[in-house]
Simulated scan of single mutants.
Amino acid sequence: MTLFYVAVGDAGKAGPEIGCGDSLVATETGPKEFTNQVEASITALLANDAQELGSSGLRNALAASDLEYVSSMVDGDVVTVRLNGAVSSSGTCDDPRIVEQLKYTAMTAAGTGQAEILVEGEKIEETLSSK
């Protein structure tokens, strides 16, 4: 299972560059097969409430959020993930970290090129921009 975490200030060296000069870094957990890979990956990502991923230096921007997986659906090259709960961001740099951690984890699990994350039925970008 592949989960994504944030390398703060890495400027795209270790993975895809996201806002504020950070990178997303893929991490692997044990080889497991699930009926729904998206559910397993997103649930594992949301279950981690630690700010830092061990001693790796990678940051978990989702640590303060209280979200739970509801469902996911793949349509063509887009995976849509529905979550319930509350997103907690500590500012403008955290917003893209949160969004991209979820999107890249979902896209990798689903094998798609795009992801849409909905929180309480609303796009996560809109949820964050209204805070």
Score class of each variant (00 low, 15 high):
2 T>H: 15
2 T>W: 12
3 L>E: 09
4 F>K: 06
4 F>H: 13
5 Y>R: 08
6 V>T: 15
6 V>S: 06
6 V>A: 07
9 G>N: 10
9 G>R: 04
11 A>K: 15
12 G>R: 00
14 A>D: 09
18 I>M: 10
21 G>Q: 09
21 G>S: 13
22 D>K: 00
22 D>S: 07
23 S>W: 03
24 L>S: 01
26 A>S: 08
26 A>K: 04
27 T>H: 08
28 E>K: 14
28 E>L: 12
29 T>E: 15
30 G>C: 06
31 P>D: 10
31 P>F: 10
35 T>F: 09
38 V>M: 11
38 V>T: 09
39 E>R: 14
41 S>C: 12
43 T>K: 08
43 T>V: 01
43 T>R: 05
44 A>M: 03
44 A>R: 04
45 L>D: 00
45 L>A: 06
47 A>V: 09
49 D>K: 15
50 A>P: 03
50 A>W: 06
53 L>Y: 12
55 S>W: 14
57 G>P: 15
58 L>I: 13
61 A>C: 07
62 L>P: 02
63 A>L: 04
65 S>E: 12
65 S>Q: 09
67 L>C: 09
67 L>G: 06
68 E>W: 07
68 E>N: 12
68 E>M: 10
69 Y>P: 07
74 V>P: 01
74 V>N: 01
77 D>N: 12
78 V>W: 02
78 V>K: 01
79 V>T: 03
81 V>W: 00
83 L>Q: 01
84 N>H: 08
84 N>P: 03
87 V>N: 02
88 S>R: 12
89 S>H: 05
91 G>H: 13
91 G>R: 14
93 C>F: 13
94 D>K: 13
95 D>G: 07
95 D>Y: 06
97 R>W: 09
98 I>H: 03
99 V>R: 01
101 Q>Y: 03
103 K>C: 03
106 A>S: 14
106 A>T: 11
107 M>Y: 05
107 M>G: 02
108 T>Q: 11
108 T>K: 12
109 A>V: 00
109 A>K: 01
110 A>W: 00
110 A>T: 02
110 A>D: 01
113 G>P: 04
113 G>S: 12
113 G>H: 04
113 G>D: 08
114 Q>S: 11
117 I>R: 00
118 L>F: 07
124 I>E: 00
125 E>S: 14
128 L>N: 09
129 S>K: 15
130 S>C: 08
130 S>I: 09
130 S>G: 11
131 K>I: 06
